[in-house]
Design a protein around this nucleic acid. Structure first.
Length: 728
RNA sequence: GGGCGACUAGCUCAGUUGGUUAGAGCGUUCGCUUCACACGCGAAAGGUCACAGGUUCGAAUCCUGUGUCGCCCACCA
């Protein structure tokens, strides 16, 4: 493979300094605050975060083979949290090692406009200011959210920098970049033409507070105790937990095989007294009815229930909206018109009771209700014209890829979770009734709907809806590498590994696999590394309302970035949640300082020594020991056992090198013989081997020490990795 | 209702796919102003590996069951 021979950046001389005598700063404890910003600026200025600028000598090791990670784009609607710090640490470890191994290591940063999530955050802000989006001009609202998002995006980028991320800022992407927006819209048009998206009036998850529909995974199912009412309905008894929806119920449904109701035939009609007076009801026989449940008879409300909708569709029954988009009853409710459902329910029950129609109430009944995952408002199922992605074919592609082993999961058991979800995935509602998002390139005229980037002509109006944000972020590996054309796409796609949180396996990872397969016939990444959640010291989920949120930047301020990175990584196995304790971070600050003092000791005692001195047999063994560790650690990282690699290096550094080797060296160094000369050269070599190994984990302190060693040149960041590959 | 995972030292967790006396960090106890480091050094205590069976020469590790906790998915009104 050929690789770009873009001119190597000249490194400004003042950036790399090699003092003859040890710098005074080694006489004081390591000071991350005074060190980190300068080091990061130096790296960034070097241009080496961009793999096209990497020295040819380095790339020559791997023949310019690419290694790509696409950074999960943080939502540009707030500060970074501990989870971001974890993924930065992990991904930077992979990228830094691969870069040192000679890969064209590319880590693409970005930001997500995060449609609904951002709008929710902004609406809360408006609420605090006593404003509401429903009283605002849409354009004005959009501009305000845009300004808010761009400000957050800039803050967020600097926070990512301060965590030491060696990502290529020159390739940074934002989901609302005009070229990306266009590509996302093109995908929609292509899917429309391929009949993989369709427009349909179907039951959607409607959030009455946020005034938008939501996908199934954007709702939480919560078990609640809800009274279960049984009412007289003509000659029948019917059960319900939602009396407020019953105004329009004029179909009574039972199972065709239910012997108890043999005398009633499908299509029979009868008169009955109902909530607001007499109505005519029709008997429907349908297999969906569970004869065992309740009386085996129910009435249906097709507009506000998925199951009822399906039944109504099968039999071509009328559907009528009972509850409006705000969650209030419509005129069909008569005297209850305009009343909120929560208020209306007990009143309706009371009325039915007075009419002698209430048979019984079961207060112990447990019922699963859907809630908006952002505001916990009860989801109101509503029938609405929306765009849906047809999942069947796409889902099969993804499952096949997993079965073939084209994608593997770390930890392995997540594959089962993924497959289980995938096999049951139903059509995906991608329309959102919010302004903050990518407009859906669809046009309507006389009940017809077409997808097209441009207006099809006179009289067509554009869809006012925007895409589910995951519709765009699902294409992220493609969008960031420049699909469908361009050198980057050619070179850097598919990526090497997708490292992200377990919580967005369905939201994001599943969709990326689907879009990758659909658009390129290739999975976007062969490996999915899923990290667990970062919880507070007591293992509780961090949340603003609980007030237990740990800001990673506060910790780096106090203990240094290297310390936080180690604390997040050591002992943190993939897929397992982590309890982040300040003590742990503090411990690794001490470790950074320990390394600092090791460097000080070694540099001090070996000043002016001949680094090529002949080594004693004992010293050769020490060199070999570290080589073996280097190989072992390389193997661990390449097999995603970062937690082990970090611990082994920690242990070697502190308890082998410092506690044993340095201690035993003291008397040896005191002599002026060959053994002393050998040991001086050996300690220096051990240090120059250990620093690259520790660098991916603790980039700042290692680079700082490296820059102060007389025998080193250039950056530690681009120094060859001191061990062969474990896998090739 | 279905699925996934966890249970190892006081606490937080490792234990790399069965192999000597089960490890780390923090904490605890004792002793050290030892000239790299008190952000330190030396030592020590502390575990029926949730429980019950099974496979095996050998089990924290594999199998079966039980219990407890956590997470995810779910259109029985």
């Amino acid at each position: 493979m050929k690789f770009a021979s873009s001119p190597k950046r000249e490194i400004t001389p003042h950036l790399c300094y090699s003092p003859h005598i040890m710098d005074e700063k080694f006489l004081k404890p390591y000071d991350p605050k005074a060190t980190e910003p300068g080091i990061y600026a130096m790296w960034e200025e070097s241009g080496y975060f961009n793999p096209d600028n990497l020295p040819l000598e380095l790339l020559g090791q791997m023949d310019g083979k690419p290694y790509t990670i696409v950074m999960p784009p943080p939502n540009a609607n707030g500060d970074l949290h501990a989870g971001h710090a974890l993924f930065v640490a992990l991904q930077d470890i992979f990228i830094r090692m691969k870069r040192m191994q000679g890969y064209r290591a590319l880590w693409i940063p970005g930001a997500d406009h995060a449609g609904f999530e951002t709008q929710v955050v902004y609406e809360k802000k408006l609420e605090k200011e006593g404003r509401s989006r429903f009283q605002m001009d849409p354009k004005e609202l959009y501009e305000e959210i845009l300004a808010f998002t761009l400000a957050n995006k800039a803050t967020m980028e600097n926070q990512v920098r301060s965590l030491g991320a060696s990502c290529d800022w020159s390739r940074q992407k934002f989901t609302l970049d005009p070229d990306l927006v266009k590509k996302v819209q093109q995908t929609f048009v292509k899917m429309f033409n391929d009949k993989l998206v369709y427009r349909g009036a179907r039951t959607v998850n409607w959030c009455p507070k946020h005034q938008t529909s939501l996908s199934d995974i954007e709702t939480d199912s919560v078990e609640e105790s809800t009274p279960f009412y049984t009412f007289k309905y003509g000659p029948f008894e019917i059960g319900t937990v939602r009396p407020e929806t019953k105004f329009g119920d004029k179909y009574v449904v039972m199972h065709p095989d239910d012997a108890r109701y043999n005398e009633y035939k499908h299509g029979d009609t009868f008169e009955l007294e109902w909530i607001n007076g007499p109505i005519t009801a029709t008997v429907i026989k349908d297999n969906a009815i569970d004869m065992e449940f309740g009386t085996g008879v129910m009435t249906i409300t097709p507009w506000h229930s998925q199951v009822d909708f399906e039944i109504a569709k099968r039999h071509g029954l009328d559907m009528e909206q009972i509850i409006d988009w705000r969650g209030k009853l419509l005129p069909i409710a008569g005297e209850f018109e305009g009343v909120k459902i929560a208020e209306a329910r007990p009143k309706i029950v009371e009325k039915l009771k007075e009419k002698g129609l209430l048979v019984s109430v079961d207060d112990a009944y447990k019922n699963v209700v859907k809630k908006c995952y952002k505001c916990a408002t009860m989801i109101e199922p509503q029938v609405k014209d929306q765009w849906f992605v047809k999942m069947e074919q796409l889902r099969d592609m993804a499952v096949t890829a997993v079965n073939k082993g084209d994608v593997r999961f770390v930890p392995e058991h997540e594959e089962k979770v993924f497959r289980h979800w995938m096999e049951n995935a139903i059509d995906w509602n991608i329309s959102r009734q919010i302004i903050w998002g990518i407009p859906i390139p669809a046009w309507f005229k006389d009940g017809e709907a077409v997808a097209s980037l441009e207006s099809p002509g006179e009289g067509w109006t554009q869809d006012a809806d925007t895409f589910d944000t995951w519709f765009s972020s699902g294409q992220w590996p493609l969008l960031t590498t420049g699909y469908p054309d361009g050198d980057d796409f050619e070179t850097y796609y598919p990526t090497a590994v997708m490292e992200t949180g377990r919580d967005i396996l369905f939201f994001w990872v599943a969709r990326m696999i689907i879009f990758g397969l659909y658009l390129t016939d290739r999975v976007p990444f062969p490996t999915i590394y899923l990290h667990g959640m970062v919880n507070d010291a007591n293992g509780k989920k961090m949340s603003k309302s609980k007030g237990n949120v740990i800001n990673p930047l506060t910790l780096t301020e106090k203990y240094g970035t290297d310390a936080l990175r180690m604390a997040l990584v050591v002992g943190n196995t993939p897929g397992t949640d982590l309890s982040l304790r300040e003590d742990k971070v503090k411990g690794y600050k001490h470790f950074a300082n320990k390394l600092w003092n090791i460097a000080r000791f070694v540099l001090e005692t070996s000043e002016g020594a001949d680094l090529n001195a002949t080594k004693t047999e004992a010293d050769e063994i020490l060199i070999a020991e570290l080589s073996a560790l280097a190989k072992d650690v390389t193997n661990d990282i390449e097999n995603y056992r970062v937690y082990l690699a970090a611990e082994k290096l920690y242990h070697y550094t502190w308890h082998r090198l410092a506690d044993e080797l340095i201690e035993e060296s003291k008397p040896i160094l005191a002599g002026m013989d060959d053994a002393a000369a050998s040991r001086k050269a050996t300690l220096r070599q051990l240090l120059t081997t250990l620093l690259p190994l520790l660098h991916p984990f603790m980039p700042f302190v290692t680079e700082e020490i490296w820059q102060n060693m007389p025998e080193t040149t250039g950056f530690l960041m681009t120094t060859p990795w001191p061990a062969p590959h474990a896998n090739t």
